[in-house]
Structures are given as C-alpha cells and as structure tokens.
C-alpha cells in the first residue's frame, strides 16, 4: 500500500516534471519566434524610414520649385539645388534626412551631378537606393530638364 502510494506520487511528480519541460521548450520557442518577428519589424521600419526620407527630400522648400508659394510637384529649382549643399550640410538637416546621401543627376539635356546631401553611415549593415525622376527647372532660362533624384538611405 505504501509502495503503491509512493509509486503514485513518483508518477505525479514525473508527469509534472515533463509538463514543465514542455512548457519551457514552448517558451524558448516563443522567444525565438518573437526575436525573428522583431527583426522583421525592424526591417519594415527601415523601409518606412527610406520612404520617409524620400517624401521629405521631395517636399523641402530648400529645393522645391515654387511661384508665389504655389508649389510645383516633383520639381527641383536648379539654382536652389546649386545653393543647397552648403545649407543641407548644417547639423539641423541631419534630423530631417538622417544617414543618407542625396544626389541630383541631370540626365537631359546635358549632364550634371549635384551632391545635395552626404551623410553616409560608416560600416552600415544596409544601404537602400531609390531613384525618383524629377523636373529640374532653371529660372534663369525658364527651361526644364529631365533629372533623377538618387536617395541612398543607410542603416
């Protein structure tokens, strides 16, 4: 009788032991999945950052074409672009654009390249490059050229 009782007790303890091992295994598995989920979310947020920089760069009054404050979408003023690099190099623009490089390439007619902003991240894990066709308006000659705004975001 005693032995039976002891056997029963041992059985219960063994079952509980196995149960806790299973719970622990499940828990370890859950944390690993959560870790991966966080990494995926981090990558998603980095993508959102790249889109944010692209949106912000395109809407900077420092570069945008405008007449009497009526903004022309998807257009960069050529004379503003030539003056912009010295201003965009100031520390306050790091808050706007972060670790990124912005280059304005004039494709047609003629070619030109204006490095508007350059703050690459040394030893970056990731670099995402985006290309946006933009009109480059020269107010001196009132003509429009075909350009590309190259945005590289580092993370």
């Amino acid at each position: 009788m005693e032995k039976r009782g002891q056997m029963q007790m041992m059985e219960t303890v063994a079952i509980l032991f196995i149960f806790f091992i299973l719970i622990s295994l499940g828990f370890i598995f859950y944390t690993q999945v959560a870790k991966q989920s966080i990494a995926t979310k981090a990558e998603e947020f980095q993508d959102l950052t790249a889109i944010q920089v692209a949106q912000l760069a395109g809407s900077l009054p420092e570069l945008q074409c405008s007449e009497q404050n009526i903004v022309k979408e998807n257009c960069i003023d050529y004379l503003k672009a030539q003056a912009a690099p010295a201003i965009l190099a100031k520390p306050e623009y790091f808050d706007v654009l972060g670790y990124a490089t912005l280059t304005l390439q004039k494709i047609y007619p003629g070619t030109d390249e204006i490095p508007l902003y350059s703050r690459p991240l040394v030893n970056a894990d990731n670099k995402r490059a985006s290309f946006f066709p933009v009109a480059i308006f020269d107010p001196a000659s009132s003509t429009t050229a075909f350009g590309v705004l190259v945005i590289e975001v580092y993370s």
Binding site: P61, L79, K80, Q82, A83, A84, I87, E92, A140
Partner: peptide
C-alpha cells in the same frame, strides 16, 4: 526661425545667380 534663415540663405544665393 532656424529653418527660415536657412531657406532665406538659399533664396539669397538664387537671387544673386539670377
């Protein structure tokens, strides 16, 4: 105001070029 000064500086250089 900091932003305003930066934008004005760009417009100033644009005006000089024009």
């Amino acid at each position: 105001l900091v932003r305003m000064r930066n934008v004005a500086a760009i417009y100033e250089q644009r005006a000089v070029a024009l």
